[in-house]
Simulated scan of single mutants.
Amino acid sequence: MWELGEHFRNYADEYRDAVHEHFFNAVPESRQVFALSMRDTHTSMAPALAWVLEHTEPGEPLLADVSAKLTQLARDHRRHGFPAEIYSQFEHALVAGLRVLALTQYQYDFARDVIHQVCEAMAKAAREADSAGEAPAYSAQVVAVNRPTRDTAVIRVEAGLAVPYQPGQHFPVTTQYLPGQWRMLTPAQPADGTGQLIFHVSSAGEASRSLAHAQPGDWWTLGQPSGGIGAKDSGRGESVIIAYGTGWATARCVALAALKENSRQVPRIFAVAGSPGAHYDTYFQQNLAALGIPVRRIVREEKDPWLLNARELAPGADYVVSGKPTDVVVNEVELSTGTPPRFLLVGPAEEVAEGEEKLVQRGIGKQQIDVLSWGRDGRWQPEDYAALS
């Protein structure tokens, strides 16, 4: 029901507020779990439900891929600390909120049926994760903070136990001074069984800025990792990563994983930044080059902003200046022969969207392009279903 999904999107704020009014009255203790500002609370709830409505036929059960994504979402939401039984009360709130949408009886009945299936599927997934002994979240202490530029922090945390994840996955992260607010951060190195993780945090938005100003001794809460960059396939041609800003963390993690696994298909990396000093990890990049994974640095402007407070680049860390970084990539990657390369674009949403558009204009098929991005406020912008979190 595409028209019903669109209706939910158009009245997302009104529906969300009505649902919360009912839920917080029914379960008062739940209020402390969410952000203090109502406008920052459950912002993706209505779009997520709209997506499910659009992918469900009247009278039919949820599609397998929809159920799979709801299962992942339920596992993710265990980080909030609610028992699986909460879904029955949340179902009542979701149905009660329908009153603000002025639906026809047919639309109301359909939406109520889908909501019931959604909550049943998520409750089941949460109970199964509980029974399997899966940790709902990890507590990690900040042990080191490095600020290579005014806008970027490299933060090391220790969880005290192994934290499994795959390269390219991101963790929902919060801390005591961000009540109810979570930001998605991607580790900059593969999981190693020690419980140590490194995050590159850009000061994008108030919440991310707060995380970037962490101090040793702070405690962070990490939910279960999600997302990712898809399965490796050595038959898909060259792997090319275009990393914008702190999207470099993902590229770094993928490169280290390839070296660790002695993979024959190491990625080719292009790192894009606004100016030379914004390439904040050049010593590590030079070490990667010595191990056979060169990093091509691209800058949009030749001079650093005077407030950037950047450190000097590593010896030999050259770069090319271009206002059109995608053109540099396409001109240097072989496109005319053999298996087409696979592109991964990761970084701020505007830059990733621009890069994807430019690749398509240069003849790269969309099926050859994967994207991982986040918005100005630091929130990740993956495909529709992932916004459920």
Rank of each mutant, 00 (worst) to 15 (best):
G245K: 00
S239M: 14
I241K: 09
S275V: 03
N309R: 15
P341Y: 07
E332P: 02
A314N: 13
E261C: 12
P340F: 01
L308W: 03
L288Q: 04
S263L: 10
V254G: 10
R300M: 12
G247Y: 01
G227D: 09
L211I: 00
V254P: 05
A251S: 10
G338Q: 05
A251W: 01
A278Y: 09
V329H: 02
V201E: 02
N262P: 15
C253G: 03
P340W: 06
S203E: 14
E302P: 13
T246E: 05
G223T: 00
Y283S: 11
L256C: 12
N309Q: 07
Q196V: 11
V266H: 06
G316D: 04
K260T: 15
G292Y: 06
S263D: 08
P315S: 07
C253M: 05
S322V: 00
V330M: 07
W248F: 14
T282C: 07
A317W: 00
P315G: 06
F284L: 14
T339Y: 03
F270M: 06
E261A: 11
Q286R: 09
T221R: 15
H279P: 10
Q286C: 14
Q196H: 01
K232W: 10
R264L: 11
F270K: 01
A251E: 01
L211V: 12
N309V: 14
R300H: 10
P276K: 14
V295H: 13
S226N: 09
L197S: 09
I229C: 05
E312Q: 12
D233K: 15
L308T: 02
F284C: 11
G230W: 01
G338R: 03
H213D: 12
P325M: 09
Y280H: 08
G227P: 08
A289L: 06
H213G: 04
K303G: 13
P225D: 03
N331P: 03
T326M: 09
I293V: 11
Q285S: 08
W306K: 15
F270I: 13
S226H: 13
S202D: 10
S208W: 00
L197W: 08
Y319E: 13
I293W: 07
G227I: 07
W248S: 07
T339K: 03
P340C: 02
C253P: 03
A314F: 01
L256T: 13
V328L: 06
E302R: 14
F270S: 10
K232M: 04
G223L: 03
R268F: 07
Y280M: 09
F270E: 07
F270H: 02
R252D: 05
V328C: 04
A273P: 10
A290W: 10
A249Y: 05
W248M: 11
E261R: 03
D218R: 02
V299D: 13
V329F: 00
N287I: 08
D318Q: 11
P325R: 08
